[in-house]
Design a protein around this nucleic acid. Structure first.
Lengths: 206, 206
DNA sequence: GGAATTTCTTGACAGTCGTCCAGAACCCGC
DNA sequence: GCGGGTTCTGGACGACTGTCAAGAAATTCC
């Protein structure tokens, strides 16, 4: 049964979680504009309607806030491509949809992914970042593998490499494209599209 | 002709440059251990035999020091693989040498390359970093391309992708391997070797 | 409406940061 | 060994950082 105290506590927990989510959303925005190293808690708070003290009411310290943000980022990031897998009936259609999806992500969410690469680099130095970063990396790898696997299936071929390999190469391609796109290159997105399709056709064989 | 003043001035310039190089070397060491965001000028100075004030005698500000370090890193980094190209007489020998070179770099210079990925991420936020980062990225791309091109030549095949594509994928592979290696994975180096050979055989065709 | 609890603000704290500068220490030609 | 230039030191400065706690404000409950 549910006591009155449980109901109260439950609602408080929900409100608490909701505010955490809301604060993390603002933080994610500020972080993606300024980068991890240059963003202070006061700056994050200024882009919300709360004071900097509030951040310490909802998060123990800066690391906990950052990691909460990263996990929130992941949720948005991964599922985008599963619709493409579900909607594509031919290998070529999947390839086209995937390439377009990557280009759209690079164009529309450039700042968020810039932050992702920043935080992944930080995790090379800050061990406390690694578990969450590894988890996101893993879910991205699985996402890429669903694409590759479905592409192989649709084209009646077999993947020629491991999922780790596939993820590493697609990630490298995306990262390089992001760098060029943010540097103002007009060709970056087209090259990303072409590169993705080329890569996809090379990770499978009959 | 060379005047006495010229000789004096010349020697001073040399000494000045030599000390800059020496300070940058120490800075590179400290930076690679702690990362860009966590390394202060005082900390850099403490790992040399000089005081923190000296850094500002030889470098205008922190950015100039960092960029000087990065350029020094580049010089060490690129040429390593050209010997492999020159020494390999067969396609398979080149592939083996290249794969072993990548694994050795990942093992021996992990911290330096961790710093490279850190600084490249920083360049996504700090525009003043971009020219130097882009230049290093370009020289790495050319280095990779010399490998691929020579491999195609030795195996009587043609490259199937652009040099930008080749660099992006090999870089992605290396970066992922570095992350796993630094996280303590024993398989990282072997996977890197295998991945590199696999990738190399797939960027060419008859 | 008043008491209790949650939520939020504000200011302070102890550090650290990059930068600057007055002057000490050193080097070198004369 | 003296003088002038180069090299280096170490302290000071103001700005900024993450963290904390005391209390104001808002909300909730009876």
């Amino acid at each position: 049964m549910t006591t009155a105290a449980d109901r109260v506590s439950r609602r408080q927990v929900d409100k608490f979680e909701e505010r955490r989510r809301q604060l993390a959303e603002g933080a994610l925005q500020t972080l993606s504009e300024r980068g991890y190293a240059r963003t202070s808690l006061r700056e994050i708070a200024q882009n919300t309607e709360f004071s900097h003290g509030t951040l310490h009411y909802y998060f123990r310290d800066k690391v906990e806030l950052i990691m909460y943000c990263v996990r929130q980022y992941k949720a948005v990031c991964v599922q985008r491509y599963d619709a493409i897998v579900a909607d594509s009936a031919t290998a070529d259609g999947l390839a086209r949809g995937f390439a377009e999806g990557l280009a759209a992500t690079c164009r529309d969410d450039a700042l968020l992914h810039r932050l992702w690469y920043d935080l992944r680099s930080q995790s090379l130095f800050e061990e406390s970042f690694r578990p969450d970063v590894a988890e996101i990396d893993g879910s991205l790898e699985r996402m890429i593998w669903r694409i590759v696997d479905r592409y192989a299936e649709l084209s009646g071929q077999e993947p020629t490499c491991s999922s780790a390999m596939a993820y590493a190469t697609f990630d490298g391609l995306f990262q390089q494209s992001l760098l060029r796109h943010l540097s103002g290159s007009d060709l970056a997105l087209d090259d990303l599209r072409a590169g993705a399709r080329h890569l996809l056709s090379h990770v499978v064989c009959a």
